[in-house]
Write a protein that binds this DNA or RNA. Structure first.
Length: 440
RNA sequence: CGGGGCGUAGCUCAGCCUGGUAGAGCGCUUGCUUCGGGAGCAAGAGGCCGGAGGUUCGAAUCCUCUCGCCCCGACCA
């Protein structure tokens, strides 16, 4: 993409309403535009990041055996009357009426709907287990939206729903999601720690929140320091290996980790003082096992192996996709701007032509841009006729992991500069060597 | 939903107390100079001062009502 063509309205000054760093940087980098309190339009750069995150989530869900569907944003109220949540959910649920005066709502979640779909088709234990997910916009009419996209009213969420015949199988479904989440967040370059959590209005007997540590996190969290060094990224996992998956879960639940609501001071103090971590955290995922809470009232039953009728056991598993955009920035930025982890960066490499109009600069920049593109590096080429300083500052602000800086001074001695955004480290290389460095 | 604050140019804000025909910086347009970390000079464009009532000869400014947004708290993916 050529910067001169791109709709990327960056700002030198920070809009007044943005308080926390991720919100400020998202506004300055021209990623989103607020249209009402807690509701945002996604501009090209923001949208690209959102899609990258969404795709990682999708791939890891698929890998764990879940299947993607797409349910509507608007739901009929009757469905929610059956589960009893139409009245329970309160004012957070946006209620609307259609032209026939029928009660509808903008879905805050989809347990009722997925259960209704499931029960319409699945009648036999032979069709179990199943895990269905979708990635869809939700609406919760928060009293006080804040922190930009991290706590909006409209938000993009991945929610998965598992259906099983008995507890061991249902527990395995929960464990699979647990492990898939660890891998999902690790791929994005995030350290997400599973913590015991409150089940809230969703209900259930087993639940973990996946929390990333960041100074501006919404809630106080407490955990054992060793979690910070745990790693899942390396080895592949066989999701059909029940014991193996269980082992990973056990490892990640062996030490103390809890959010404020579930915090047990006595247990925490048993940890050696130097291993206690008290920090702020951002919830980016939440998994629940809730048994028959929805399958019972909505009548999701199958015929078991002995001919008996069994109410299926369910779990639900959420990831805040749009929230992650803010969360990633909270976890990775500096004074100059955003620092995207490679996997979610809107473009892979920024090519900065410091002197547009100079024959040699134009030629080398254009050539690097074309070759990086052919190599699948998704380059962003700043070919605007702007001052060098403003282009460099802009490139730092939008945070692409790599920059190639092409200027007349370097070209005199046949070199361009390759800069790592995170470390700030710069290397002077010939254009060919730079290309190799960035496509290796 | 309680408490507080703010709505003036695309953005950051001044002007309001003490009413008198709308300001600055950044950004934008044009020209010249500059050109490796958010340039300089010059000339421009751009605002029913959130909206509605009221007071007044006259309202961005005073009064009333409304709408929107932000912050703290309670609540939440």
């Amino acid at each position: 993409m050529r910067r001169s063509q791109l709709f990327l309205p960056t700002l030198k000054e920070t809009p007044a309403e943005a308080q926390i760093v991720s919100h400020r940087l998202m506004m300055r980098a021209g990623m989103v535009r607020q249209t009402s309190a807690g509701i945002y339009a996604w501009l090209p750069m923001g949208f690209r990041v959102l899609k990258k995150i969404e795709q990682i989530v999708r791939e890891e869900q698929d890998r764990s055996g879940a299947q993607e569907v797409l349910m509507p944003t608007i739901q009929p109220a009757d469905l929610w009357r059956q589960s009893g949540r139409y009245d329970d959910y309160g004012k957070e649920m946006l209620r609307i009426k259609d032209r026939h005066d029928r009660d509808m709502l903008f879905g805050p979640t989809n347990e009722e709907m997925i259960t209704e779909i499931f029960k319409a088709y699945v009648k036999s234990y032979r069709d179990l287990p199943k895990n269905l997910y979708h990635i869809q916009w939700k609406f919760r009419d928060e009293v006080r939206p804040r922190f930009g996209v991290m706590r909006g009213r409209e938000f993009l969420m991945k929610d998965a729903y598992s259906f099983d015949l008995d507890y061991p199988s249902s527990r395995h479904a929960y464990n699979k999601m647990f492990v898939a989440y660890l891998k999902t967040f690790a791929r994005m370059g995030l350290k997400a720690i599973p913590m015991q959590a409150d089940t809230g209005p969703i209900g259930g007997d087993l639940s973990h929140e996946f929390i990333i540590l960041a100074d501006t996190g919404e809630s106080q969290v407490f955990c054992h320091k060793d979690y910070v060094d745990f790693d899942v990224s390396g080895q592949p996992i066989d999701f059909d290996d029940v014991a193996g998956v269980q082992k990973v879960v056990e490892r990640w639940t062996s030490l103390y980790a809890a959010t404020d609501e579930k915090h047990d001071t006595a247990a925490f103090e048993k940890i050696p003082a130097e291993k206690r971590v008290t920090a702020r955290g951002i919830e980016v995922g939440h998994i629940f096992h809730f048994g028959t809470k929805y399958s019972e009232p909505l009548g999701a039953k199958v015929t078991g192996p002995n001919g008996d009728i069994v109410t299926v056991l369910m779990g639900s598993y959420g990831i805040g996709v749009s929230r992650l955009v803010g969360g990633l920035i909270e976890a990775s930025h500096d004074e100059a701007g955003i620092i995207w982890p490679e996997a979610v960066s809107p473009w892979g490499v920024g090519v900065v032509n410091l002197k547009v109009g100079d024959g040699e600069c134009d030629k080398v920049s254009g050539d690097l841009y074309a070759k990086l593109g052919n190599a699948g590096r998704e380059p962003l080429y700043d070919d605007r006729d702007e001052r060098a300083g403003s282009k460099l500052a802009d490139m730092d602000l939008i945070g692409l992991p790599w920059q190639v800086i092409v200027g007349p001074r370097g070209l005199k001695s046949g070199v361009v500069e390759v800069k790592n955004r995170r470390t700030g480290e710069k290397q002077e290389l010939s254009p060919e060597a730079a290309l190799n460095r960035l496509t290796a």
